[in-house]
Amino acid sequence: MISVRNVRKNFGNLEVLKGVNLEVKDGEVVVIIGPSGSGKSTLLRTINRLEEPTSGEIYIDDVCITDRNVDINRIRQHVGMVFQSFNLFPHLTALQNVALAPVVVQHRPPAEVQELAMAQLSRVGLAHKANAYPQQLSGGQQQRVAIARALAMEPRFMLFDEPTSALDPEMIGEVLAVMKSLARDGMTMVVVSHEMGFSREVADRVVFLEYGQILEEGTPEQLFDHPRHPRTQEFLSKVL
């Protein structure tokens, strides 16, 4: 379970998150939507502390990860992250990208990790690209390798930060398909996305964030078909 409690984040004088509370249960898929600059990505990035909250607490499985004494590197092994810009390691092949962290961080035997990495690449349909370098792959393929890389750590949670926003339209489908299959397998996911179709199909809950506050949350049906908050209605009328 992920529990975000009254989290605030300031960048200088700018208050990006104004006391956000969010609970994500095991196996749940939560999609965060909202206009750009609403603090969606910042909120997501506080969950693995790529962004340090200015105040408030975040619990992952009852461990307070905003505690100064917590070993954040241990926590991060259980929280995979996928970025908008893929961020694959360009000096490594697809397979090496996937295999790096289990060897370096978890000290698992390279031979064993090799197999695991291959299995993860197959899972995202890219076993045949194992020896390709990132620059030889399309955007959609790169993002699928990035997902495999995160999965190789066998995380309990996955964070997706606008995973399809940097992709050409024809490649969005293949990435969403991988995410859907992950959701079907019961992965706990927090997704920042503009893909309303995906949200409607996969999300257990949709959260609408604006000006650093959660204005409304509910099932996709509630939020998309019967939004209560006028700001939600206005936002949805623009994007749907």
């Binding site: 991060r76 092994q77 995979g80 390691f89 962290a101 978890q106």
Partner: peptide, 10 residues
Amino acid sequence: QTEAARSLGM
């Protein structure tokens, strides 16, 4: 690059 590496627990 750093963020991706750190997010994996490095």
